[in-house]
Write a protein that binds this DNA or RNA. Sequence first.
RNA 1: GGCGAGGUAGCUCAGAUGGUUAGAGCGCAGGAUUCAUAACCCUGAGGUGGAGAGUUCGACCCUCUCCCUCGCUACCA
Length: 696
Amino acid sequence: MNYKRHTVTAALPYANGPLHIGHLAGCYLPADIYVRYLRLKGDDVIFICGSDEHGVPITIKAKKEGITPQQVVDKYHKLMGDTFSDFGISFDIYSRTSGKVHHETASDFFKTLYAKQIFREEVTEQYYDEKAKQFLADRYIVGTCPKCGNENAYGDQCEKCGTSLSPTELINPRSTLSGEKPVLKKTKNWFLPLDKMQPDIERYIETHKDWKTNVYGQCKSWLNQGLQARAMTRDLDWGVKVPVEGAEGKVLYVWFDAPIGYISATKELVEEKRKSNPQSKTLDWTLYWKDKETRLVHFIGKDNIVFHCIIFPAMLMAHGNYILPDNVPANEFLNLEGDKISTSRNWAVWLHEYLIDFKNKQDVLRYVLCSNAPETKDNDFTWKDFQAKNNNELVAILGNFVNRTLVLTEKYYNGIVPEADTLTNNDLALLDEILQFPKKISSSLDAFRFREALAELMNMARAGNKYLADNEPWKMASTNDARVRTVMNISLQIAANLTVLMEPFLPHSAKKLSTLLNLHNLKWSDTNRTDLLKPGHKLGKAELLYDKIEDIEIEKQIQKLIDSKKMNDSQMPQPAADAQAALQQPKPDITFDDFSKMDIRVGTIVEAERVPKTDKLLKLTIDTGIDRRTVVSGIAGFYNPENIIGQKVSLLVNLAPRTIKGITSQGMILMAENSNGELSFVSPTKQNSNNGSVIK
RNA sequence: GGCGAGGUAGCUCAGAUGGUUAGAGCGCAGGAUUCAUAACCCUGAGGUGGAGAGUUCGACCCUCUCCCUCGCUACCA
């Protein structure tokens, strides 16, 4: 199908933290490359993004920091917008979901579905905090986990045992807002009946078998499991107000409102264009969302597949008149030095920090992240690889080719493009080869194969290097001017074509190269010729496109990560964590007799192994001084069995035995838990306590 | 446990519908060269294609079993 225009979106980043390399590699960089390529071809394209600013985690962060949700999102909206712009992510608009246009758009969208009676209304009982006068999101309720007895389980999940919970399952629930016991109160919510819509969604997915296997496969997986109706409203005061009667104190579910953010941002963009350009007066946003000749493409990370491939299309179908996503090229995840990127563990390369350490090297990161992008499977980013790709590819191949061409031209012809003499068969063959690259790169980009496209770009620079090496103009400088002029002319034409082809991937470098060549405003279609630089054209002064990165700079980055790791191991309490802990109320008083019923002893771990087919359990053999006994403990997420042999622990020895996974556990190891649910052994600080020593 | 995606050279990864000697870049070894940021260019070594079985004239690609990694989901303290 031939489309007249493209609406390209990049996932709205959630405004509760800064951006890291995973964001860029997974979503924003491929999207930007694709859009720049389309623009160079002269296609009508809009590139949409913005901050996702609603939802419970932002309200929690605000509470922890003692500021308003609006202050949280203002801070990160600014930071993320600046970061994108620094890295040359060329959004036509970077909007935000707390904006007025978005609230109206999302609200209208909901009203339309409501009027069409799409929603299923359900009254359920939810916890309500009478003191704070509001319904409590699952995350705002803590209580005792019915499964493991953890007294600080959240309403949606017990972080200790990992069980998914609903708030009503908690024993002794408490509100984290006031510490009060919440009461159950009836509340009405509106559900999108995905179960009923499943056949339509299936038909839609079936017409897109061309999607990437990871995307299509994930969709099939969801469909096979059967879709469930999802509540599209929440009892919360931060978000888009639900615009129907009887919905006071409710907002739209963040995943309902976020994708609508693409539409609101489009409206804003079109409005801007109309104001600034008289020719755009009649431009209408619906062109980009409701015209069958518009191609809608969503760039996202794999965590968003279900929302963009199933829920959002379902919303659009239910609304009617909208076009549906034609492709959703989701990437997998990027790891960092072999470990998962983690914000809470500070295991990340933060983009705003990168630009401080590697000033003006945004293209280097773009290059490395694209050439190693997680297109088909999770990939690993390492600093050594980053250095190697910079030094051996950008510097040695691309930068070097451009530099030697310019330096030679400067030396022989004072920086003026020489006229080619008779072309040899080899020259013609090379020119033919050069003209193949734009086609190869196009077809790779059309298929969202960005790594392949970038590799071809580098191959073109290689071909240039080889051409120079084969023809050795420096050997004939004084003997065969006609030949030297020809070789230099051809080399310069290659550089000129590179300027265009590299622009989507390396926009900053492309701009610099344009200046060096004194050649501007080229289009993709200009790459079908090899006479872009006319004889007599004056070039700019030769300058290096890229600098080598020394070992010491890389070691500094690696050290930074090692420090993060140390920090995590020592489990420094975070201020925010303390604030959270302070909210937990003390338990009711007990007597000394109650306490003395517990027999807590010092013990030593003498054997440890993982319990098969579980994520969290270790089977431990403990020397208690009295005996040796087996204890099953849920600490595998925090300790490796081989590292804890000989560890002194505190053990509740007279806890009634319990069989877990077929193993009889005799006792319970006491652990200190921080607010992130991370566990640490509690043991005597002096070595003078033998096994069996009583803890009292 | 169920589902999805993967497991290909030392490293990071490509390989349309099954068809002759399985590819690239980096790294490594040798050579050539000096215009260029000791860069470029050439040559070479390196793979029982996770393991095993099956279908086929023929399988990295299809089927089955098992092992490992990642994700979703379930269960578990």
